[in-house]
Write a protein that binds this DNA or RNA. Structure first.
Lengths: 204, 204
DNA sequence: GGTATTGTATACCGATCAATACAGAAAAGA
DNA sequence: TCTTTTCTGTATTGATCGGTATACAATACC
């Protein structure tokens, strides 16, 4: 690696981690450069030299978030032997992840940038795509269960996937509103109790 | 009425209606005074003379929203003869209200101001209280059903209420993400299909 | 008409926004 | 040592933020 010139005086990964926390807590628009730089312990020129722009920094923060936060929510989807167990893990891990001590409540992907809410067209579009991806992951797991005979052929996997994704997104708002882990877990358990009604009798 | 002085040159109610639309579409922080005044067709001094401040205008906009938008969602709660039918109406009216043509998708109460997301401590607190009120309304209806014997004595009304409120809040995000009425209705139907699992076997 | 009262339009306030110009500091290569 | 390269701190950019001072216009009361 060509390490010409003055070496960087801060840990890029650590600074990114702190930027992620700020975006997570305040959203893209709510996180000012002053918020970011003071949390990262650097000045704005250093931020722009290392991350190009607020938007690029946000993109990297989202990548870091996906890589490090609540990963078990999605890995357990495919690992669980049945779709029912997959959904159980999905909801319970969500309840736990959204109330991690020392971390902002709720999910960066869900709360980080609502569409049409600000100047952040790119950030909005990126998060919306992530959310759409999440619904797809759920749908694929349910269709697998359908192929394996766990779900009846008539089950509307698309609707059930949207249902659980919607519930999870609502849990972000609940967490942000102050719901503690027990309260979130009770919602998760209700979602699990809902499974039989959904898997058994698909809506017409 | 003391109509001393120069009469107001615009319709206050109409201007408030337009302000509500702007807040609804962009949220408290996302709605700039320029957005508001240009939508309302007035200049900022007129806005401040009529509504005192952005925060007070937002408060009035929220009141107007509660008074005019999706009222059937909540009136049908008490009107429906059974809790099951109440929840059916609740979810279906939500799907319809959140995708009203010509109106911003989703709900102002849910999307208007996320906690910790900006400079709007008062606006956040107000909306959070509204959301908590909504959960309470659901809980009261379920407890009534419990008293009437529709729900078993062991049912966790608080958890079921939180579950449906959470689902509804998630539907706001789905709507804002572009889900059309059919898609939202499919989620609502899934929520209805979930009822039996919830009402029959309360989570331990 | 004259005065008091109230609304409107223009132009502006200090603060903050995201983003940079610039100069000095710290390293590598010659 | 000297040049080149890159990073850092200070100070600043133009734009926009929510909110107003001021002058003028339009009405009611007298």
């Amino acid at each position: 690696m060509s390490a010409r010139g003055r070496p960087r005086g801060f840990d890029r990964e650590e600074a990114l981690k702190r930027a992620m926390s700020v975006f997570w807590a305040k959203g893209y628009d709510g996180a000012s450069l002053t918020d970011l730089t003071s949390a990262m312990g650097i000045n704005s020129p250093s931020l722009y030299a290392a991350f190009c722009s607020k938007e690029a920094l946000f993109r990297e923060a989202v990548e870091l978030y996906k890589r490090t936060q609540g990963t078990e929510i999605w890995t357990s989807l495919d690992d669980a032997p049945t779709a029912r167990q997959a959904i159980e893990h999905f909801l319970r891990k969500t309840a736990i992840s959204y109330t991690t001590p020392g971390m902002p409540p709720g999910c960066l992907i869900v709360l980080g940038a609502l569409p049409e809410s600000g100047t952040n067209a790119a950030a909005c579009a990126e998060l919306r795509e992530e959310r759409a991806d999440n619904v797809e992951q759920l749908r694929r797991r349910l269709e697998r269960a359908q192929a394996e005979g766990e779900l009846p052929a008539g089950a509307d996997c698309r609707a059930i996937a949207a249902f659980y994704a919607t519930l999870q997104q609502g849990m972000s708002i609940q967490a942000r509103d102050g719901a503690d882990r027990d309260r979130l877990m009770a919602i998760a358990e209700a979602g699990i109790a809902a499974w039989d009604g959904l898997a058994g009798s698909p809506s017409d």
